[in-house]
Computed example of a mutant assay.
Amino acid sequence: MNKNPLKSLDYDLLDHVFDMGGGYVLDFSNKTFSEFFFDELGIDIDNAHYCDIGNSKANRLRSYLRQASREDVLKVLGALWEYREVKRKRAGVKEGNPQYIAEFWQLIRRLGGTPPKHRAENDNAAPCEKMDDRIANDLLGKLMEVSNLDPQPRGYAFEKFLKELFDACGLSGRASFRLVGEQIDGSFEMVGETYLLEAKWTNQQVDASDLRAFNAKVEGKASWSRGLFISNSGFTEDGLLAFGSGKRLICMDGLDLSEILLGRLSFQNALSKKVRRAAETGRPFVRVRDLH
């Protein structure tokens, strides 16, 4: 049996950090709590093994932590922290308990984990408005080169272009970009949020079936993930209408990319504005030139 790495006072601290009063854990419902543990951590938190002190979400979490190894405790606490921070930042809520957070990271260090680098000064800062002229010109030239290529080499060149664009903008990649046919898959992180990426460079505009297929991928991942669909040829009006509103997808076309580079706009800033407009209107695609 694993020796419990947590002390009694540690559980009291976790109650404060993860809002475990009244048997709750953060804003999870029973369904999303189970899905989070299974999808993100491969843990069946509903197993009777973890209901020995009660069936509430908080009691199941406490039971798991008491039985888990130090490595698994770190893994679960890290995943819960990431979920907490994404939800807090997305809601625009300032940290209300800094003393508890400092103690939490002391606990992580004691368990052998590594707290993230301190970035508090950037947590609520808006992305910079402008892209460096030299970088923008270089990327714009490469985008023009991609457009002149034949279909097969064009797909790989577009993949390379997007990787360079994301690297230049300081986005944290969570997975390598991968070309499948004419479609590029990948993911990146921006301001603590994970975005799944799907990109296409074809002669045809993307229709509702492509949007629905990608949306299904996004909905099959963590509840805080978003999707960014980049289609150089754009999206059909009928497809966008049929796809509907209120989804977790943001759409971007080739004209948007050109507008960003020609205007020396920050990619993060343009994407943040698209996200805000989608939240306001429910529409996944609003052109960069129409964002104010």
Rank of each mutant, 00 (worst) to 15 (best):
N203M: 12
P127I: 05
D138Q: 13
A79L: 08
R248N: 04
Y50I: 06
Y195W: 15
D123G: 01
E237N: 14
L249V: 03
L271F: 12
L249C: 03
I184K: 02
D10Q: 10
P153S: 04
A157M: 07
I53E: 11
K130Q: 10
R277D: 15
N59M: 13
V286R: 04
G282I: 04
K130Y: 08
G78K: 11
K274V: 02
A157E: 10
N4E: 12
K142C: 06
Y195M: 13
C169S: 15
G220V: 08
G112Q: 13
I230D: 01
S176D: 13
G42W: 00
Q67N: 08
D238W: 09
S225V: 15
F243Q: 04
G23I: 10
L255T: 04
L111Y: 06
F177K: 05
V17C: 09
A136Q: 09
I43A: 07
G54P: 10
A270Y: 01
P284C: 11
Y24F: 11
R70N: 02
R226D: 07
L261G: 07
I184W: 03
A79R: 12
A279M: 07
G282H: 00
F229N: 02
F188M: 05
D138A: 14
H118E: 13
D19P: 00
K117P: 11
D10L: 12
N2M: 15
G263C: 03
E159M: 13
G263W: 01
R62T: 09
F36D: 05
R66S: 05
D185T: 07
R119P: 02
D167Q: 02
G173W: 10
N30C: 00
K273M: 13
T236H: 06
S272T: 06
A175E: 14
G113S: 08
N215C: 10
L240M: 14
S187C: 08
D207K: 13
N215G: 06
H49A: 09
V286S: 08
W224N: 13
L14K: 04
R277F: 15
W224Q: 10
K142R: 15
I250Y: 03
R110K: 11
E103H: 08
S56G: 09
D133L: 03
A175L: 07
K163Q: 07
S245V: 10
K117Y: 09
R287A: 12
N124F: 15
R226P: 01
V288N: 04
Q67G: 14
I230M: 06
Q152P: 09
S63C: 13
L143N: 05
Y50W: 12
I45L: 06
K247N: 11
Y156N: 12
D72R: 07
D138H: 10
S8W: 08
D19Q: 10
T236Q: 04
A125D: 03
E82D: 12
G112Y: 12
D46G: 06
G112F: 14
R277C: 15
L171T: 04
L179S: 15
M252C: 15
L111S: 08
M252Q: 07
L265I: 03
E164Q: 14
G220D: 12
E145K: 11
T32H: 00
G92L: 06
K75L: 11
I260M: 15
V17F: 01
G22C: 05
F37R: 03
D210M: 09
G113E: 05
E182Q: 13
V180Q: 09
A58V: 01
H118N: 14
S225H: 15
E189I: 08
